[in-house]
């Protein structure tokens, strides 16, 4: 889910080829990297998988923010393991994108100069320890709702990456819930942290699903190609329906006065997030956009000599090996 508002490309390919391609997708076949595919399918997937990968990478930062302040050795170990998993997800996803003919370095450069996006959620700050529980519970929880169906997506490498990612993400969501439950059942100060984290992250978590379908111009083609499996509103409703009882179980106050059970629909009603805020964040004006991108750019620039050095050594080593043979 870490892909939002992915612009779907129209295709100008040969109509016969397009029809045959669509027939394969409709029959539930997987498209593999060497198969023919419409240029628009390739371009849209690079954008979507790339955005997802970047989200995993930038997503290390808000959680990394608390690793050095984790309150126990066990919590520190759990958080480290989780952030390490996210970096691993980034790696699988970049590999999946590479099968479409774009390199990881190219994608990285597009992230760093702002040509490619990452999920809006990572532009929000993590301000107290309960955020580490809330991020796992709400953010990973929201991501899973989008990623579980993507295990069935039409592009083989993406689908296989999602299968691995989902196993780890559901573990993270459970760990997150455990961490916030500890806070919600803790001292008054801890409960206050849990409530604060929920209140701050609720609407940003709802925004992760993207704007309402009525305003979403990219869905139809992506859904036909099975690279988007559900509408944004379907998934958002599912998220609200599964999360509200969890909030009640935790004994926390609901973060939105508009949440009420709607007997007729069989779903919870809820208030819409502030979409103006969402578009501000997408356009670079979220609370942390500048700092997140600056941190990634600094890591990349500071690491240049390391990458160059290790590459030069690998070349020398290979040359020495050839010379010795």
């Amino acid at each position: 889910m870490y892909a939002q508002m992915v612009k779907s490309e129209a295709s100008t390919d040969d109509p016969e080829k397009l029809a045959a391609f669509q027939a394969r997708i409709d029959a539930g076949e997987k498209i593999e990297p060497k198969d023919w595919m419409p240029a628009g399918y390739r371009k849209t997937l690079i954008r979507q998988i790339g955005q997802h990968a970047h989200s995993e990478i930038v997503g290390q930062l808000p959680e990394g923010n608390w690793i050095t302040r984790a309150p126990t050795l066990e919590r520190k170990a759990i958080l480290l393991a989780k952030v390490q998993d996210e970096a691993g997800h980034g790696l699988y996803l970049y590999c999946a994108a590479e099968t479409l003919g774009v390199s990881r370095d190219e994608l990285t450069e597009m992230l760093l100069d702002g040509r490619m996006k990452y999920s809006s959620i990572f532009n929000y700050p993590t301000l107290n320890w309960a955020d580490m529980g809330a991020v796992g519970w709400l953010v990973d929880g929201a991501a899973i709702l989008n990623q579980v169906p993507l295990q069935r997506t039409s592009f083989g490498p993406y689908s296989r990456a999602m299968i691995r990612v989902c196993k780890e993400e559901s573990f993270h969501a459970r760990q997150g819930f455990d961490a916030i439950r500890k806070m919600a059942n803790g001292t008054p100060a801890q409960k206050k942290m849990a409530q604060d984290a929920l209140n701050r992250l609720w609407f940003p978590a709802l925004m992760m699903f993207g704007p309402s379908d009525a305003d979403s111009v990219h869905s139809t083609q992506s859904m036909a190609w099975k690279i988007k499996m559900n509408t944004n509103d379907e998934l958002r409703q599912k998220f609200v329906d599964q999360t509200v009882p969890q909030i009640e179980f935790l004994g926390l106050d609901l973060p939105d006065a508009g949440i009420t059970w709607n007997e007729e629909r069989g779903h919870y009603d809820y208030s819409d997030p502030d979409w103006d805020e969402f578009f501000d964040v997408i356009q670079g004006n979220g609370p942390c956009n500048t700092d997140r991108l600056a941190a990634r750019n600094k890591a990349w620039q500071d690491g240049q000599w390391v990458r160059d050095g290790l590459l030069a050594h690998a070349r020398k080593k290979a040359a020495r090996k050839v010379a010795a043979e």
Binding site: I67, A87, G88, Y94, K298, A299, W300, D302, V306
Partner: peptide, 11 residues
Amino acid sequence: CGHAPVLEEDI
């Protein structure tokens, strides 16, 4: 965490 020169090093 999150600041290494390359993804493999972060891991």
